[in-house]
Amino acid sequence: MRLEFSGAPEIAAPPAVVWQRLLDHRFVASVAPGVESVEAVDDRHFKVVSAFGVGSVKLKFQLDVELSELTPPKSLKLSARGRAPGSGVDVSTRLAIEPVAPNRSRLRWDATSEVRGTVASVGARLLKGTAKQLTESFWRKFAARVAERSK
């Protein structure tokens, strides 16, 4: 099942700070939903264990996360490929940071997810809403926390 979501929250911080936060895997993990552990393989590759639910189905995903196409401090691509019992997921997010005012930026994000196996097959009614909620709240939270820390 393919899902596409996007958003463009404004962040009360300059692009350089947003960029720095995006590359800080511990910071990103701290705002991501259900993260249980994160381990850096190198500065572009990470192993993440994350647990979340779709309706009454709770799943633990093992994710390989990669940062690529880095154009500091403007844009990058964040890809995650993961698996859970009987299931698989690929998320590809394009991120672009634009300055909007002094000390303010806009973070445009465009996420395409592909969900496979059991999660897709239980999710006809539930998946889209849940995935949207998870994705949007992640970036909303990211924006808020970046702003908080840069005060």
Binding site: V115, R116, A124
Partner: peptide, 16 residues
């Protein structure tokens, strides 16, 4: 029975 275009079965339970 509904498959999406990627061949994922969307009606995989009796809830759907």
């Amino acid at each position: 029975a509904v498959y999406d275009e990627d061949g994922q079965l969307l009606t995989g339970t009796l809830m759907d």
